[in-house]
């Protein structure tokens, strides 16, 4: 039972940070299917930084992990500029731009990983081996019965993510910029009339989206995968988008949704182990979060309220 909570949380939190990124972009009025590409590219950038740093530090050093997270955010943000440029300045179709950005991310990272590996190690491998981050338990809280598992064996990045989510919740709902951002997605004309800059607000939102997704990607690389390879494109970015829609573009609701996903996934795996089924059956249990999403969407999609101006390029002269 505690393992369900521990594993569930370590899956839910990276998913959450990506979903928060998606919320930022969509609340500003830019449809963002590119989360999958952002997280992959961010993870690639972070992993590359870690690989370059590792030989210069003692073996058990945890520094590369934090450096990787920083660089993943930077890489995701840089890559997000492409989506912003296409959607905001070039007025491309935003769904198509998202798909394009995703396909390009897979191609770019795979190509560069094998090229970098050939250059550094002489083997054409498409993986950066990273290892798994250390885990820590919180002394008192982890002894609480039932929910103690939530605080046991936590990755340090989980704490960073929780902190970031609080910060970005505050930014969106309690600051001037956050209000402008939300106005930008509902009625950009109103923001323009009030003296705000729609293009600038959206650019910042998409860049934040990329940075947060990059962090989510590198956290998956350091926990579930233990390496960076094309298998980072597992569809978690899309799952984050589903979490956002199901959470009705609202950060607190999305937190709950991500926790449900995480616990469903970890619960499925533990169930599979508990029932002593063969390895093949894990596939069926891995399917669980997706089936759950579909079912929940059927029940909750009707009363969804997506940002009104989402998906429309900003046109100054329209009313």
């Amino acid at each position: 039972m505690t393992k369900v909570f521990t594993d569930g949380l370590s899956f839910a939190l990276p998913l959450l940070i990506m979903a928060v990124g998606a919320i930022y972009s969509e609340k500003s009025g830019v449809t963002n299917l590119a989360i999958e590409g952002f997280q992959g590219f961010g993870a690639f950038f972070g992993a590359l930084a870690a690989i370059l740093l590792m030989p210069h530090l003692p073996k058990s050093s945890q520094v590369p992990i934090y450096a990787a997270m920083l660089f993943a955010a930077v890489g995701g943000a840089i890559y997000a500029c492409l989506h912003a440029l296409l959607c905001i300045n070039f007025k491309a179709n935003q769904v198509i731009s998202g798909v394009v950005v995703n396909i390009l991310a897979v191609a770019l990272t795979t190509f560069f990983t094998s090229t970098a590996n050939t250059a550094m190690l002489g083997t054409a491998s498409n993986k950066f081996i990273l290892g798994v981050s250390n885990r820590y338990s919180i002394p008192l809280l982890s002894r609480i019965p039932w929910i103690g598992g939530l605080f046991r064996k936590m990755y340090p990045f989980e704490w960073i993510i929780i902190g970031l989510v609080v910060v970005f919740w505050y930014l969106m709902y309690r600051t001037r910029y956050g209000m402008r951002l939300r106005a930008c997605g509902e009625n950009p004309q109103a923001l323009d009339a009030a003296g705000g800059d729609v293009v600038k607000t959206r650019w910042i939102a998409v860049i934040i989206s990329g940075a947060l997704s990059g962090i989510g990607g590198i956290c998956f690389a350091y926990s579930i995968m233990a390496n960076f390879s094309p298998s980072i494109y597992m569809g978690y970015g899309y799952l984050a988008i589903a979490a956002m829609i199901f959470g009705n573009w609202d950060i607190p609701a999305t937190v709950v949704v991500c926790l449900i996903f995480g616990i469903a996934k970890a619960g499925g795996q533990q169930l599979c182990i508990a029932m002593k089924l063969s390895g093949n059956y894990t596939d069926l249990f891995n399917m669980l979060p997706y089936v759950l999403t579909m079912l929940l969407l059927i029940f909750f999609s009707k009363r969804n309220h997506p940002p009104q101006a989402c998906g429309q390029p900003w046109d100054h002269s329209r009313r």
Partner: peptide
């Protein structure tokens, strides 16, 4: 059910 086809196709 008003499920956006992009999300449902990806899940499927």
């Amino acid at each position: 059910f008003n499920i956006h086809e992009v999300v449902s196709t990806i899940m499927v």
